[in-house]
């Protein structure tokens, strides 16, 4: 039963036209929910959560930094999954997704790096440390750049997406290995890393706004992907009847 339902969804969402109607229905309420959730989390975290007994108020940047980092990482994983579906099963919507997912993810990786280094100044005394997480995020940004660059130089859009998909599959494997290898390098020169906070010791008053802003940002990412995917679908199917009708009726 479950398998049947999943299969049906796969085929429905695999159809560009169905995806277009689906996203028209989802976007009007998903967009406000995403924005409200994100704002709630941020305002709570930045204005109302208690200050840290060691780091004072500067820690508050985690309400942006942590959601951005997690979003960037998840985005690349989604890129890899879309890549697999696009390369192995030749699904057109997965190709569209490859193009839709990359830019926001790259922006999040950049935001994560910027906020991380702003946070680093008061805590480490320097904007940049080759600490394991920051280094991994930098490499993740490089990998986003690679996927986007490859997509941009290939003219045929389907071929571009499939090439980027293959790169993303290899990239996802690489992300995992990079994480371990970067941590291994740290153990090789001991002492330079400063543990900022242990996951288990985080104060619940900080935890909830953090979780809410994280959820909000993920939803916003989803909104962004849907919007980008919609316009890509419209462009790709511009000659089809249903898009022509859409244009004539003014998108109604």
């Amino acid at each position: 039963m479950v398998w049947q339902t999943l299969k049906r969804w796969y085929h429905m969402l695999g159809s560009p036209r169905y995806f277009h109607t689906f996203s028209s229905r989802v976007l009007p309420w998903l967009t406000p929910i995403a924005l409200i959730t994100l704002l709630t989390g941020l305002v709570w975290g930045l204005a109302f959560a208690p200050s840290d007994y060691q780091q004072g108020n500067s820690y508050r940047i985690i309400f942006i930094h942590v959601p951005a980092s997690s979003g960037a990482l998840m985005g690349y994983m989604a890129l890899g999954v879309s890549g697999l579906v696009a390369v192995v099963w030749r699904m057109k919507m997965a190709e569209v997704m490859l193009k839709a997912i990359a830019p926001f993810g790259a922006a999040l990786a950049a935001i994560s790096l910027i906020t991380g280094s702003l946070w680093g100044k008061p805590t480490w005394g320097t904007y940049w440390q080759w600490d394991a997480r920051m280094t991994s995020m930098l490499i993740l940004l490089f990998m986003y750049v690679g996927v986007i660059a490859l997509q941009n130089v290939i003219r045929e859009p389907r071929q571009a997406a499939r090439a980027a998909g293959l790169l993303a599959i290899v990239g996802v494997i690489n992300v995992v290995i990079v994480k371990y290898s970067v941590e291994w390098v740290q153990t090789l020169h001991q002492g330079s890393t400063l543990k900022l906070f242990g996951e288990s010791t985080i104060n619940p008053a900080m935890k909830y706004p953090l979780l809410i802003s994280m959820l909000g940002l993920w939803l916003l990412y989803a909104v962004n992907v849907l919007i980008r995917a919609r316009s890509e679908v419209e462009w790709r199917e511009r000659r089809s009847k249903w898009v022509q009708t859409l244009i004539r009726t003014g998108g109604k």
Binding site: I139, F142, L167, V170, G171, N174, V178, S181
Partner: peptide, 17 residues
């Protein structure tokens, strides 16, 4: 240059070890 942009991030684990 494009090759380098694609490939260098993938080289990092091998370089590190």
């Amino acid at each position: 240059i494009l090759l380098a942009v694609l490939v260098l991030p993938l080289y990092i684990p091998v370089l590190i070890f």
